[in-house]
Design a protein around this nucleic acid. Sequence first.
DNA 1: TTCCAACTAACGAACGGTCGTCAGTTAGAA
DNA 2: TTCTAACTGACGACCGTTCGTTAGTTGGAA
Lengths: 197, 197
Amino acid sequence: MSSEKIKKAAIYYFAINGYEGTSLSQIAEKVGIKKQSIYSHFNGKDDLFLQVMNDALNQEICDLNTKIKQYPKSLKETLYDLLQDLMMRYENNVYMKFWLRMSFYPPGHLFDEINTAFYQYEREQKQLFLPLFKSAIKDNVLKKKNPEHLVIAFISLLNAITVELVYGGVERAKEVVDPSWEVFWDGIALATEGAKE
Amino acid sequence: MSSEKIKKAAIYYFAINGYEGTSLSQIAEKVGIKKQSIYSHFNGKDDLFLQVMNDALNQEICDLNTKIKQYPKSLKETLYDLLQDLMMRYENNVYMKFWLRMSFYPPGHLFDEINTAFYQYEREQKQLFLPLFKSAIKDNVLKKKNPEHLVIAFISLLNAITVELVYGGVERAKEVVDPSWEVFWDGIALATEGAKE
DNA sequence: TTCCAACTAACGAACGGTCGTCAGTTAGAA
DNA sequence: TTCTAACTGACGACCGTTCGTTAGTTGGAA
């Protein structure tokens, strides 16, 4: 299907050049058609953008779901795996790059639509993380803290790694993830063996 | 001076709409002149942008310096104040908003220039933070950790708060800063009073 | 003090491009 | 025949940029 190819090209350029930095002719050229032909599939640039954004939203939510649901591991392993997964996805998943850029700096005239989608994603994210921490608190492996606050702190850690991914890709994020993770885990976990090494 | 007014208008629009999303006529209109008149002061859009970027870089480095040098407080107070300061600056300081956006998503054809400036800022940042942690380690208030890693972890915390500032401004960052800070501090400090509260 | 030259900062007009978009057409498949 | 997806051609708008001009100012020299 040709409209899929168009969306694929669109998401690629939107992700690396932003909305204003991407032209329809650029997209069309990548597909191998003329820019006017895009109007056989979409009502215009905004329509194309919003459809692509919706795909990216669903993709991100879906990814997050399958990722978490399949984890019968310990909290520590689960969270650390989520960090690693974030880094892997950033390199390979163009949806995520797109999603990131647009949630950071949406084009002004589509702010409302993007913001609505963004809050939907965020609600989903928090609802998925919360049970993990709640059950860990029950199991008595964490310092006694508000589980909502723990979710916030973990999302902050994810955001910090995300920033490093944007700044310098995976190589750079790798230098940051372990020091930050160690501080985070020491900050939430009950000390079981004293200050380690 | 009129070229200062141009730069002020430019940084404002660059910060909120990005490089591609900002036109010279927009800038000129805000100043109250025609876009052609900008060429009496700058060689073109790129020149204007790079001059503005240089101003922002110097401003940021200067801010950082004066902020840290004036702190004879404890590490805990100093770091927490830096977090609070970050949030205050984001609202009032257009240089910072500009700097942030351009370090996240620079216009492609100016990537090299921006990247060079960015690394200069980052080096400065690390050199300023490192002594704080080193002396705190000597004073024996921290878990024994690599001071470079502590700097990385703290910058991660700053980045996380920055993301929240970009997402939803100060109100939103305020909801995140305390939970994240608490986890961070518990993660690096020696427990002096057991699990608190 | 007057005069002229140089400089400055703004201007209108126009340039070649590219933008997103629309209308009408054509070729092939159902 | 109807429908679809591509095409050609053209539209007005705006982009960054260049040019030549026009005021207003400044600094000496006469």
